[in-house]
Amino acid sequence: MSPLLTLTGVHTHIGRYHILQGVDFTVPEGETTMLLGRNGAGKTTTLRTIMGLWRASAGSIRLAERAIEKDATPDISRAGLAYVPETMAVFSDLTVRENLVLAARDAALDDTRLAWIFGFFPALKKFWLSRAGTLSGGQKQMLSIARAIVEPRRLLLIDEPTKGLAPAIVGALVECLMEIKRGGTTVLLVEQNFRVAQAVGDRVCVMDNGRIVHAGAMAEFAGDEGLQQKLLGLSLDTHQ
């Protein structure tokens, strides 16, 4: 498939630190691409650079045919990117509903789509008018993902959605990610839980020290424990 997102030679500096040192990869349209790598490899920085929250100091980022590396974050968002940050960043003083109203931008909340979201995240329906700050960690993560899918977007960037969540909640998130995928939405997903990565990923890119050190099909990567060991420094059984 043709790539929806293409990063070519992307460098990012944070202050005087040179974090991304020439990142190259593509995200094919309609698939889920996993971005893996050790802590501190630069995954979050990559997603933030794509969103324009850090400025790329060199290289190009293209969404289909459009160069977005110089665009402001709101323009990148309006070009069709939705971002679920590692911190979830729900607006805790606002209700669940108000969080989604802002995420829908100019569109009104769509009942059919909400019903679809409530299907895998029933807690959001239950706490519809509660302040997001009162939700549990897992519920906040659901809200953060719901914000990204409340309207159809072209590309979802999701950063470690299962981090610190109970297994039951991880299951619901995997359901949701599979469902998003079935709907044909393109996803770039950072995930440390290898079982989750294996379940939802079509393709995989592995980062280390601010560079992509491996890119290929998920099935192939999942079958090669030696490669996993080498790139992620963790074997499957210790990873759980």
Partner: peptide, 11 residues
């Protein structure tokens, strides 16, 4: 589908 509703834990 894993229906989860950890509402009891809601602070």
């Amino acid at each position: 589908m894993t229906a989860i509703d950890s509402g009891a834990a809601l602070p």
